[in-house]
Computed example of a mutant assay.
Amino acid sequence: MGGGQAGLATAYWLTRAGRECVVLEARARVGDQWRERYDSLRLFTPARVDGLPGTPFPGRKSAWPTGGELADYLENYAAALGAVVRTGVRVIEVDIAEGGGFTLSTTVGALRARNVVLAVGSDSSPKIPEVAAQLDPGIRQLHSSQYRNPAQLLPGPVLVVGASQSGADLALEAAQAGHETWLSGRNHGEIPVNERLAAPVFWFASNHLLTLHTPIGRKLRPAIRRGGSPLIRTKRSDLDDAGVHRTTARTVGTQDGRPVLGDGAVLDVANVLWCTGYRPDYSFVRPAVVGPDGYPAETEGAADGVPGLFYVGLIFERGFYSHLVGGVGRDARFIADRIAARSPSGYPVATHGQ
């Protein structure tokens, strides 16, 4: 399930192992999840490390791909994959079948599978604080998943809630478009060198330091999954230079329909951008397979107690690299190897049910 980078990378390794597989993508086109992001989005990492297995990212290796460029890359990758990729197919429910395997209810009918890989990521349900419902209806509110560019904003000040990378990006963009801008949220730190120098440090840490095999990785995993990573591209100095009002006070309530910060400040703004992340949603899997934090109960991508159910692309699945475009292939191969070990060669991975 999922025709993004995680699902396609897993299909690549399964195909190379001689295992039949079908990729189901709910959107009309492969890559649409990236086409739906804000226009100015660029990846955290340069093109030289953004390729999926077997296909380097095209263009200059030092370039920072946009969301649109990544979308086109994924679509081309899927076309050359050699596996069946079905777009416009949404999975409604995954049930554990009697006698083993799974039954999938989809918008095109039922499917049966011996193994299921959930490669749908952790960003299916935008997380918006309850205080949003108390704001004056005249204030334009957009979650980062809905925001495309400053043309969507009403004239007047902007409050950006959430100070991780997307919040910093959108606050800078709003300020540069002429809006007085506040950025509210906890400071997650930053990599204290420029983008070009930060990339190798970030890549090394993601692949070698921040993993389940290191004490610091195991310690930081819960915090990373709750949301919040250090700034890599847009830095605090960039925000200050653009005139963004930065505050670590959280947005905690309202007064007369206006947002109130934890330090008591009441902001008279025309726009609020919620860069508050997402909630994982795996309610379509029966029975439920999630832990107390809302993430799947799994061990290195294999569902606990459910043979044949796997995950690829979770935030910090086996390391910080797990949800990065250029890193997901590592976990994809790990999971594909486990599937190959339990599935006889030539076994039909997905077939139509009755």
Rank of each mutant, 00 (worst) to 15 (best):
G329V: 04
F320A: 11
R27L: 15
V91F: 07
R112K: 13
V244D: 01
G305L: 07
A175F: 12
G277K: 03
G264V: 04
A242D: 07
D263F: 11
D95R: 15
D240M: 08
Q354E: 13
D331M: 06
P230I: 05
R186I: 08
G18H: 05
V30E: 01
Y321V: 01
L183Q: 00
S283M: 05
E69M: 11
G31N: 06
A113F: 08
Q141W: 12
L104C: 11
S343Y: 04
C21D: 02
E75H: 14
E130Q: 14
T107C: 09
G4E: 03
I339H: 02
G353T: 11
P230A: 09
Q141P: 10
V30C: 07
D50I: 03
Q176I: 05
V193N: 00
P230M: 07
G68M: 05
A6E: 00
T234F: 05
T181M: 09
H208D: 00
N115S: 15
S40H: 14
L197H: 13
R186F: 04
H143D: 11
A350N: 08
G319S: 14
R114A: 13
E20A: 15
S105H: 13
R29H: 15
L239N: 01
G3D: 04
H323W: 10
G305P: 06
S62L: 13
G277D: 02
P344H: 12
G67L: 10
A78W: 01
V289Y: 02
T251V: 13
S322A: 14
Q152F: 11
I216A: 11
D268V: 06
T254S: 13
R279F: 04
E190Q: 15
G18M: 07
